[in-house]
Design a protein around this nucleic acid. Structure first.
Lengths: 238, 238
DNA sequence: AATTATTTGTCCGTATGTATG
DNA sequence: CCATACATACGGACAAATAAT
């Protein structure tokens, strides 16, 4: 945390997400918040601005600042994602994320198959070979896996898609860190495991992209994420 | 615009998006911005907080406030979307949006087919009948169309998906307002037109969702958006 | 319909913190 | 280690909007 207003943003943001302040509720007025947290009113105002930008609250003169309904929140803000994932009440949020992932990543793969330049192909090939060499090594795999997906994502040449999927991956990493200790008995399916079988799934994607076969790339990426989804459902639904 | 800091956010945000301030560049210091725009430092600071939350800038003590690379921007923030769409240099952004849409909306339709309750079915049916009655009436259709898609979206029961697609639709509306006068000779394909043929496409989606046929719902929604995409490509690529 | 009370919005003067050269 | 230049933080005042009376 860099400064006091950022701190306060996190503190209040967390309380809103986990329901200590409910949608529709009025927050204590700025002066009171200032006393409650031992900071100046300036800091409180800047913190509220931060939450207002994320559409968690709205300020009105005289009537105070109220919590907005969930439907208005800026879900893709990395801090909002973090607060939601860290909140115990949203343990199934990772399943919702996976459904969005299932919509976007196969599309990104299809776009990459269509638009990748020769340079992109070289890069993707290099990343896949790194992946091949990482089978069995948990740490090396995690890094190579990230970069492999990144190389394909970049070749989609769609900034909006890239930004969204990057946020999505960040959220998965946060979720992973959180469940790492909690669910030791299961391997965390959020990220791919460094086995031969999973490598072959990546190979299928890799080959489809290089072959410029959009539909196949889409299909193989779907297969990969569906496998994750099924493992997640085993854990959470049961 | 509600207050001066919001105004300033828009003014600076626009300048960053359209390249008047480039990534890496250092903004004038708070005191100077304050003079330039005739507002106090407090207002400037709150505005900068707003831009920092959107990841357009980052403030550092001593080195000043710099513009962040596009890859870090919060693309789904409605204001960022607005600035990008309004900027002439991003006229093809709507195509990028459509690709994302093509990933998400068919997935949402599939989820709706899977998860819709009986109540949802009633709602969706009512919305479709409104749509049927609106054929030929541009204004009535636009409203009914919006609500039809909304009713299906809601039945996906995925807050993240709902929030994202809602932002997407808002962006399409903004884009429509912008191109409305600019491209008179073409009908704007961003939204569906109130013809019998398009109605039938909606009917196919509607029937698939009520029949709880996930794959068919996905497919029919894909068909609908692909039609839009092709029309858009005719306009922008040529 | 006018007045008042309450809360956010705005301003400014000053002081402190922090990274850079 | 010092000087500089910037952001960060504080407090007290007044303005503006709007809900309640």
């Amino acid at each position: 945390m860099q400064n006091r207003s950022e701190e306060l943003v996190h503190e209040l943001g967390r309380k809103i997400v986990n329901g200590e302040y409910l949608p529709g509720e009025i927050l204590p007025k700025a002066e009171v918040l200032s006393e409650m947290h031992g900071v100046s009113r300036t800091v409180v105002r800047e913190a509220l601005k931060g939450l207002a930008t994320r559409k968690l609250i709205r300020s009105n003169q005289r009537s105070g600042t109220s919590v907005l309904p969930r439907a208005m929140w800026q879900w893709w803000d990395i801090d909002v994602l973090t607060w939601i994932i860290e909140d115990e009440n949203n343990s199934d949020f990772i399943l919702h994320l996976t459904d969005v992932r299932l919509g976007l990543e196969p599309m990104a793969a299809a776009l990459a198959a269509k638009r990748a330049t020769d340079q992109d192909h070289v890069k993707i090939k290099a990343c896949f070979e790194k992946l091949e060499q990482s089978v069995g090594d948990e740490r090396a795999w995690a890094k190579a896996d990230f970069e492999f997906h990144q190389s394909i994502l970049h070749a989609s040449y769609n900034d909006l898609m890239i930004g969204t999927i990057q946020s999505l991956h960040k959220a998965l990493i946060i979720s992973r860190e959180k469940t790492f200790h909690a669910v030791k008995e299961y391997a965390d399916p959020t990220f791919d495991s460094p086995t031969k079988e999973v490598l072959d799934r990546h190979r299928a994607i890799y080959e489809a992209v290089l072959a410029r076969d959009e539909d196949l790339a889409r299909q193989k990426m779907t297969d990969l994420i569906l496998r994750v989804k099924r493992l997640l459902e085993e854990i959470y639904v049961s």
